[in-house]
Amino acid sequence: MSTRDRRVRTGLPVLLWVPAAVALALVVLPVVGLVARSDLSSLPARISSPGAVAALGLSLRTAALSTVLCLLLGGPLAVVLARSRVPGVRVLRAVVLLPLVLPPVVGGLALLYLLGRGGLLGSHLPGVRIPYTTAAVVIAQVFVAMPFLVVGLEGALRTAGERYEAVAATLGARPWTVFRRVTVPLVLPALGSGLVLSFARALGEFGATITFAGSLEGVTRTLPLQVYLLAETDVDGAVALSLLLVVVAVAVIAVARPRALRGQR
């Protein structure tokens, strides 16, 4: 069979190109609209304003800390969901996925009535104030971002199977050694993708943050909240910060997962 015949046989169906083009347009054209609406001459001054710099710095710090917490908490949770045989794992999996389908505002209310002064746990923490603090921003971001890591990592663990871990166990390796030397290397690509998604989701978090943490400048006002406030009084400023958020998100993906941009695993 010639090379041309192989290309013909393995080519994509023509019908796939139309919905693919529409999907691409839905992602790209809104960003193009932002660029067309922005005043490029005043863009440097707007994104370097004290409020914008403070909001960006807070967003980056809290998103980075949230990503670390997602790794430390969500990683073990994904392993437990993928490898454990305890009853009720399916129910636990559904609960973990709940933040993906809940409106972020509902998640913020749930956190408020859990950790607020009159909440289920907050009422038993005298002298500890969590809502409307930077810690509340991090908790809200972890709440909405951690499922992205758990879902991707659990799927990778299930796809990889347990045969390599079983072989290591039969050779006398202890459970922790099997996890560290076999399980973790198997899922490193999925772990990297999950961390990038978690960071990006935390960076763009809005609804749960404004409900649970409020919008205090320098304390809880992240870049998405700054964009929301400016949209009511300074549209050009909101557009400029929106473009800044887009650039930061693209830069994060490019730095953290450069192979994804080249279509490699």
Rank of each mutant, 00 (worst) to 15 (best):
residue 22 V to D: 04
residue 45 A to L: 14
residue 54 A to L: 14
residue 90 R to C: 13
residue 119 G to R: 06
residue 104 P to K: 13
residue 108 G to P: 00
residue 127 G to F: 06
residue 54 A to M: 15
residue 133 T to R: 05
residue 94 A to I: 12
residue 134 T to S: 11
residue 63 A to K: 06
residue 70 C to W: 04
residue 136 A to K: 01
residue 121 L to H: 00
residue 114 L to K: 05
residue 97 L to P: 07
residue 50 P to Q: 06
residue 113 Y to L: 14
residue 91 V to G: 15
residue 21 A to F: 05
residue 92 L to M: 12
residue 44 P to C: 11
residue 65 L to W: 08
residue 15 L to A: 13
residue 114 L to D: 04
residue 94 A to E: 09
residue 95 V to Q: 06
residue 101 V to C: 09
residue 140 A to T: 01
residue 97 L to S: 13
residue 13 P to G: 12
residue 65 L to D: 11
residue 26 L to W: 03
residue 120 L to M: 04
residue 47 I to Y: 10
residue 107 G to V: 06
residue 60 L to I: 08
residue 81 L to S: 03
residue 121 L to G: 02
residue 136 A to N: 00
residue 75 G to A: 03
residue 40 L to S: 13
residue 58 L to D: 02
residue 73 L to G: 05
residue 128 V to Y: 07
residue 119 G to E: 07
residue 136 A to G: 02
residue 111 L to V: 01
residue 125 L to A: 03
residue 41 S to A: 15
residue 143 F to C: 01
residue 138 V to G: 04
residue 96 V to L: 08
residue 61 R to A: 10
residue 19 P to C: 01
residue 47 I to T: 07
residue 26 L to F: 03
residue 115 L to T: 13
residue 48 S to M: 09
residue 95 V to P: 12
residue 123 S to F: 01
residue 51 G to W: 08
residue 53 V to R: 15
residue 106 V to F: 08
residue 35 V to Q: 08
residue 142 V to Q: 07
residue 67 T to A: 08
residue 19 P to H: 14
residue 116 G to R: 08
residue 58 L to H: 07
residue 125 L to I: 07
residue 77 L to P: 01
residue 19 P to M: 05
residue 26 L to S: 01
residue 30 P to Y: 12
residue 20 A to S: 10
residue 65 L to F: 13
residue 20 A to H: 06
residue 14 V to C: 09
residue 22 V to I: 12
residue 70 C to G: 02
residue 134 T to E: 11
residue 133 T to Y: 00
residue 123 S to W: 01
residue 14 V to D: 11
residue 40 L to Y: 13
residue 22 V to H: 04
residue 135 A to Q: 09
residue 110 A to N: 00
residue 136 A to P: 07
residue 125 L to M: 12
residue 74 G to W: 06
residue 32 V to E: 05
residue 39 D to A: 15
residue 76 P to Q: 07
residue 128 V to M: 11
residue 21 A to E: 01
residue 86 V to A: 12
residue 74 G to R: 05
residue 98 L to H: 12
residue 117 R to L: 06
residue 46 R to G: 03
residue 122 G to R: 01
residue 137 V to G: 00
residue 126 P to A: 07
residue 75 G to H: 10
residue 21 A to Q: 06
residue 17 W to G: 08
residue 138 V to K: 02
residue 88 G to M: 10
residue 29 L to P: 07
residue 14 V to Q: 08
residue 87 P to K: 14
residue 49 S to W: 15
residue 93 R to P: 03
residue 112 L to C: 05
residue 72 L to A: 00
residue 95 V to A: 14
residue 49 S to D: 14
residue 43 L to W: 12
residue 37 R to S: 11
residue 62 T to F: 04
residue 19 P to A: 10
residue 56 L to F: 14
residue 45 A to F: 07
residue 32 V to C: 11
residue 142 V to G: 02
residue 70 C to R: 05
residue 56 L to I: 14
residue 86 V to T: 14
residue 106 V to M: 02
residue 144 V to Q: 03
residue 66 S to C: 13
residue 33 G to L: 06
residue 91 V to L: 15
residue 83 R to T: 07
residue 112 L to S: 11
residue 82 A to N: 02
residue 84 S to T: 08
residue 140 A to I: 10
residue 63 A to N: 07
residue 48 S to Y: 10
residue 47 I to R: 11
residue 122 G to T: 00
residue 33 G to F: 08
residue 40 L to H: 15
residue 119 G to W: 08
residue 93 R to H: 11
residue 43 L to N: 06
residue 22 V to R: 03
residue 144 V to H: 05
residue 100 L to R: 14
residue 78 A to T: 02
residue 38 S to I: 07
residue 116 G to T: 14
residue 82 A to R: 05
